[in-house]
Amino acid sequence: MISIEGLRKTFTTKDKEITAVDGITLDIEEGEIFGVIGYSGAGKSTFVRLINRLEEPTSGKITIRDKEITALNANELRLARQEIGMIFQHFNLLWSRTVEENIAFPLEIAGVPKRERMERVQELIDLVGLNGREKSYPSQLSGGQKQRVGIARALANNPKVLLCDEATSALDPETTNSILDLLVDINKKLGLTIILITHEMHVIRKICQRVAVMEHGKIVEQGDVLEVFTNPKQPVTRKFVAQVMGTDKEDEDIHYLLSSIKEGKLLRLHFIGEATQESVISDVIRKYPIDINILQGKITQTQGGGYGTLFVQAKGEEAEIEKAVAYIREETSAEVEVVANDKRVISKHNI
């Protein structure tokens, strides 16, 4: 669907050159929600603006549905942009126009007749849940409502691609979730390919199928969201994952848990994908004469499945605990670690 090859953008200032996007090569599948995450200054917003040539690439090639965007002249690009919608962090609405007039604006530019235009506007108002606010001005809307207007406007010309540049960064958590749910709904109903730029990992977790991590203008890691969550390779990726999973506090948690148990073993279980649905604890209790005390746990859902960590205290004869650990390793899809009193993992089995 979208093929990006060797994409590069260099800005020239008075005394030096700054490379904002540095040789990105990437393929995005039709109909997927693809996330691009990075800290401020990573180059992600420049990258997304290069896709529809709001910024001109210094070099590289962008192809969308067999159309080479980087080779189009001005008139061809204007027509191609009708198939590429875009929403922004700060909405970019026309403040002197009502909701319906903002949504109708790209249709006016495209020369769509008024009757057809208004029918399309009403369809979009229904789609994004703005019924009753048609005559309102942006100053009369909440942040979430403004972004819904921005989404409807971006969809006016029936685009095949929707670019979202920090679309939820100016919103509170509850409103962010409602906008993300709307994007998922639009993706399913319309089959849109969505490229979502963000610095918030919970946004990636909630709606994206795949993710690319940017740092210093480069993509340093990419893959399915669940794989990136469970096996982050780069330091910057591990920081983002820690935002959601709380793994940055895990050493502190282990220290507290070890100090709180007076007998038995501390086990840490990891569950990935379908393993989160397995009745591992109840199976172990039925099979072995040991007691299991659940101390702490968390499961995080992604579009590709769940990922969870569970800390338990296993009490009983040491030989029976060892049998139970061996059973989890050999007969279930879970990963189990036995945590020693010096806070080092002394036994680990990987899926």
Rank of each mutant, 00 (worst) to 15 (best):
R97T: 00
S279L: 09
Q140V: 01
V48I: 15
L295N: 05
G304T: 01
E166C: 10
V21C: 03
Q140H: 08
L182E: 01
A170Q: 07
R65Q: 11
T237F: 00
L196K: 13
K9E: 10
E337Y: 14
K67L: 04
I64T: 06
E108V: 03
V149K: 15
R78Q: 12
G85F: 14
L50V: 08
V128P: 03
R65H: 08
I261L: 07
G31W: 04
G264T: 07
T70E: 08
S333C: 02
P289V: 02
A156H: 14
E317K: 14
E32C: 03
I37G: 07
D66K: 06
H199R: 10
A340F: 09
D251L: 14
G316A: 06
S282T: 12
L258P: 01
Q122D: 09
G217L: 05
V228I: 15
Q122C: 00
K262T: 05
V241S: 07
L267G: 04
V339E: 04
G23H: 08
E200A: 06
V121P: 02
R153Q: 09
E30I: 01
E331Q: 12
H270L: 14
M1N: 13
H216F: 01
V213H: 11
I87S: 02
L310V: 15
E5K: 15
V220Y: 06
G273Q: 08
G264L: 06
N73F: 01
K249T: 12
H202P: 01
G60E: 09
E174R: 15
T19M: 06
A20N: 03
T98A: 08
V225L: 09
M214T: 10
V236D: 02
V338R: 12
T19E: 14
E227N: 13
L77W: 09
A74Q: 13
D27T: 12
G35P: 14
H255E: 08
I194L: 08
R117S: 03
A334N: 03
E83K: 15
Q89D: 05
E317R: 13
S139R: 11
T13A: 08
N187S: 14
N341S: 13
Q313E: 11
G31N: 12
V220D: 11
R238H: 01
N157D: 11
V338G: 03
G316I: 04
E108T: 08
I346G: 01
V99I: 06
R117M: 03
E76I: 00
G217D: 10
I290H: 11
T300I: 12
P289K: 10
D22P: 00
L196E: 13
C208R: 15
G23R: 05
G246H: 09
M1V: 09
S139F: 07
V203W: 03
P232Y: 00
G144F: 01
I24H: 06
H216P: 00
L269R: 05
C208I: 05
S169G: 12
S136H: 14
F229P: 11
T10R: 07
A334H: 07
A80G: 08
S347M: 09
E250S: 10
D181C: 07
A314P: 02
E30Q: 14
K265M: 07
Y307D: 02
H90T: 03
I69A: 02
V99L: 06
G129W: 02
S59W: 11
K61L: 06
N187R: 15
E5M: 10
Q301M: 11
N293I: 15
G316N: 07
V312P: 00
K135F: 00
G38D: 05
S260R: 12
Q222C: 02
E263T: 13
L77P: 12
S333F: 00
A80C: 04
I281Q: 03
